[in-house]
Every structure is written in structure tokens, then in C-alpha cells.
Amino acid sequence: MIIKLMKMKNQIYKSVYSLIVGFLILSLFGTSLSMAQSKERTRLRSYFYIHDNGDREISVLLTAGRGRNMQNVSNAPISMEVDMGDSTLFLTELITDAEGSANLLVEAGYTFPADEEGITTVLASYNGNDTLRSASTDIEIKDVFLEISFDIEDSVKILTVQAKEFNNEGELIPVEELDINIGVQRLYSILPIDEIETDENGIGILEFPDDIPGDSIGLIKILARIDEHDYFGTVTKTSSVNWGIPVSYELKRLPRQLFTDEAPLWMIIGVFIALVGAWYHFFLSVYKLVKLKNEG
């Protein structure tokens, strides 16, 4: 379970504040409260993604219980609102799926109302029911734009990633000190290559390794990803380049072998000779009998 929690911590990021607060509440009052009330404690977590195409996704996960008994709550209504300071803007109501999660996709063109720093606070809340208590969470979100470019200098492959955000005047400015993970898309997952940090120009540079296999023409899909940033969330940007070692996609004919469909030639010839030799003699002796019969 500890491992599982640790893994969760690695994979799924909860905004730092609510995590600490949540833990404090849990550890201080958790036991006494749950004993006093029969209603199960619930917890809502939220995650923010910016996809390759600029679409954003807000994802919430509703769980009930704690520790080993923690369960995902399916089919629960979650209301999504934007915090506007003294009022809220209702976005929609989501229903959690079988895994207890609900997602809201926000198209790239939509602009959220934001505060002077360009940050939007989205509130997700669950009202609870007869057996489950209510829960809510908020998530701060902001757009960021990643750009990947490729260069070859003295046969060294240089990968450049530039990160930009809007300032409050609506201009794109570089983002400093942003950790960006570089990976390569593989069949099942992303193979991490390295981590880079953007400089004051919002630029991070990576010397790309030479020994990454690509597809049949050496094309590889490179991902630049910001993982679980405080308000950028998880941002993914991909770009393909033919920097990989080409892998033959040709289905080679399997050799004549014992384990393939086609037998080795010597074996076929050997069996053929043995069979022809044996049956020749059989028919020869039958022929003698035919002659014997005709003689009679």
C-alpha cells in the first residue's frame, strides 16, 4: 500500500496545498470524525492537462474511504465552476465513470476568465449523498505553449524546446526555470530521454542521443512534457523527426529450418529417397506376383 501511495504520488499530482491540508485533517480528525458519523469520507482530486493540439482537459477523481479501503466512486455528479473572486461561473456538471473519474475537455480556442496573473481557478465539488460526504477541490490552471525545433550541428543532434506564456498584457513571454521532460513515444509508453530546464529566454537545449531506434524510415515522435506543474498542469507537445535508426519493417521470410513451416531441403530429399526406395521394392515384388498370376 505504501508503495502504491508512493507511486500515486509520483504519477498523480495533487496541488501541494490541498494535499498538505488534506493530510493534516486526515491525521488529526480523521479517526474521530469517521467514528462519529456513519457517512463515508470522500475525497476529490483534480488534474490539469494541456494536450498536443492545445486542448485542455480538467480531470477529477472521486474516492471514498481511506488507505486500504479506498474506493473509486462511480456515477457521481461533480459540478464544475470557475472561481471569479466574489462570484462563480458555472461550467457544467460531470458524472464520474466506472473508474471514478470525470473529464472536461476544453477546446484550444476557449479562453477562461482569469486573474491578473492569467491564472484561472476551477472549483470542482461533489455534494455527497446518504452514505457519502461531500467533497470539493480547486485547481489553478494556465495556458503554456511549447515549441520543439531540431538542428544538427557538426553531426550532433540538438533538440530545442521553447516555452511561452501570456503576460497580463496578452503578449507571449518566455517561461523561465521550467522543467521539461523529453521522451520518445514507444509502442506502450514514453521512453524518457532526459530532463531540461528553460533559461531566461524560455529555451531548453538537449543533445539528442544517436542510438534511438525509429520506425522503418527512422522517424521518431519526440515528446516534450511538463509534468504536474502548479498551474500549467501536465503539458504535452509532440513533434516527429527522422533522427532514429531505421528498423526494417519488412517481414523476412523465415529460413528453411526445423522450427519453420518449410522443412530443410536435405530432410525432404532424404525422406523422398527413403520412401521411393522402399516403395519401389514393394511394387517390384507386387509386379512379380502379377507375373506369377499371369503365368498360371
Binding site: 521394392h281 517390384l284 515384388s285 506376383l289
Partner: peptide, 9 residues
């Protein structure tokens, strides 16, 4: 003939 057939078999 019979003998030949015998022997061959």
C-alpha cells in the same frame, strides 16, 4: 517369381 517377390519384400 514367388521367390523373387519373397526375397525383395
Amino acid at each position: 517369381y514367388l521367390h523373387q517377390a519373397h526375397d525383395i519384400m
